[in-house]
Write a protein that binds this DNA or RNA. Structure first.
Lengths: 269, 269
DNA sequence: CTAATCTGTATTTTTTGTAATACAGTTATT
DNA sequence: AATAACTGTATTACAAAAAATACAGATTAG
């Protein structure tokens, strides 16, 4: 999960590609230390449940990516690429991506924009009525022209009508909402993981079937009304949710408390 | 992502299975509302880049799982299974899974246990010396006999020697550490996503190549010394990280602050 | 030196996926 | 009621991918 794009030339949905993705993931996650020798091709073929030829094709691709080095007789060793791009870190406690630290800036591209009925699960989560109309916007956010997140937001139509399509590209959504007279009170969010479907995969420049981090967030106003529903997908190699906790209290009351991050500009991505 | 195990009888690494996993994921994530009709088989074949026969095989499996209902002429509709098990929710701010609420209890099974040299990235993260020896334990945690997390912990050998292998099964690790004279000060954690490798997939009862949530945590004592490194993998259909934030402050200083969860017993899983 | 283990290469066989075609059920339109 | 345009169903012949097998060259451990 290190390369900007999947430059391997393996058949899109084939087994070799699947093995390639798994191995690349393992290497990126530090499961195989640098300069460590991987298990032999025969061994790998058994663990992955494929033939040696298939493993071999995957290794060919990894080798081409510069992630491994193979020497006949001695084996295959892991070689981390010289310039591994650091993933963008977002502070889970403040919803703020730490972009300034790395001198990075992000741009958003609008994929689709429409008004319509809210999907069932969105309605339920936001506490909207059966026939509630919402603005649905899908954007892809990139850092240095490398896309890292796929965002779909649902905003009740009456609120969304207070800002323009152009505002979305320039101003953080929370500012737009608060400018629209909404008093934001709280947000519930939950993180999980999912597979990249064809459309998302294309938008994010990853292989279909690769792992993505998913985040759902419901933002409510002081009346408990849902004012925004966010369904976000992130490339795990380019984005991370971080959090620091402190151990406080004494004796049996000792427990964890989140440490609030430093102040950095807000951002919706 | 609803079934306990992948009961589909599709060739393990085949394309049909890949499509099956993707569609199941989409349905589980609410991307297709209940009773919504899916795109036609021909259409799906195009979006997934496979033949219609392959899509058909995937749909056969979904149908067998009871996730969809097909009617010639009208199309294929989504049917959520009657008893969808609620995922376990863990509070990210307190590191406490909310198990009590749902009357659930977890059990841990030890997969491997050893002492040895720490892998490179673990050493770096914990700030240990080149030749530091650590205790490495891999456990699978289950709720009601359904495995949901795969945990690997690294603890410096001198600390780990203060408790027994049996203690690990019964007592939360933080209590063991603090009983060993360690004063825990802070923890850094980060969340991401990854693919299920064959060994993890087997332990968690999922398909190889399905999406997993991954969590890395480094726990430090008051001297900044790493006392625990946790690499955890979670089934996204059975586990979720939740967090509630409050919007506080006035004007331009308005920002988010995490809301601390209710008090529930601690747990390492 | 020898044996074991590794990657590299080539060939054949088997499995899997694809494409094409015809058919049948449903729905909306004419 | 007929029809057109969708849907899923089924079977076929064909192409592509993967598996199985065998063996050659490189390297390391004993």
């Amino acid at each position: 999960m290190t390369q900007t794009a999947d430059r391997a030339t393996l058949p899109e949905g084939g087994k070799a590609r699947r093995v390639y993705l798994l191995l690349r993931d393992e290497i990126a996650n530090g499961l195989h230390a640098e300069n460590a020798t991987l298990p032999g091709e025969q061994r790998m073929a058994e663990t992955f449940g494929v033939s040696r030829v298939t493993v071999r094709r995957a290794l060919d691709a990894l080798s081409q990516d510069g992630l491994i080095e193979r020497r006949a007789g001695s084996g295959t060793t892991v070689r981390l690429p010289p310039a591994q791009a650091q993933p963008i870190a977002a502070d889970f406690t403040t919803l703020m991506p730490q972009l300034v630290e790395m001198g990075q800036s992000t741009t958003a591209r609008l994929l689709s924009f429409s008004y319509g009925a809210a999907p069932d699960h969105v309605r339920r989560a936001m506490g909207l009525g059966q026939s509630a109309r919402v603005q649905i916007a899908t954007r892809v956010r990139s850092a240095e022209d490398r896309p890292f997140s796929h965002l779909t937001t649902y905003v009740p139509a009456d609120i969304a009508s207070n800002y323009s399509e152009g505002d979305l590209a320039t101003t953080p959504l929370y500012h737009l909402l608060e400018r629209s007279g909404v008093t934001i009170d709280e947000a519930e969010q939950s993180v999980s993981a999912t597979l990249a479907s064809p459309d998302v995969a294309e938008a994010l420049g990853v292989s279909v079937g690769s792992a993505l981090m998913s985040l759902r967030r419901v933002v409510r106003d002081v009346n408990g009304r849902g004012v925004e529903y966010l369904a976000a997908l992130y490339r795990p190699d380019m984005f991370r949710l971080d959090m620091t906790l402190s151990r406080v209290g004494e004796g049996s009351a000792r427990h964890w408390r989140p440490r609030i991050g430093a102040d950095v500009p807000e951002d919706g991505g």
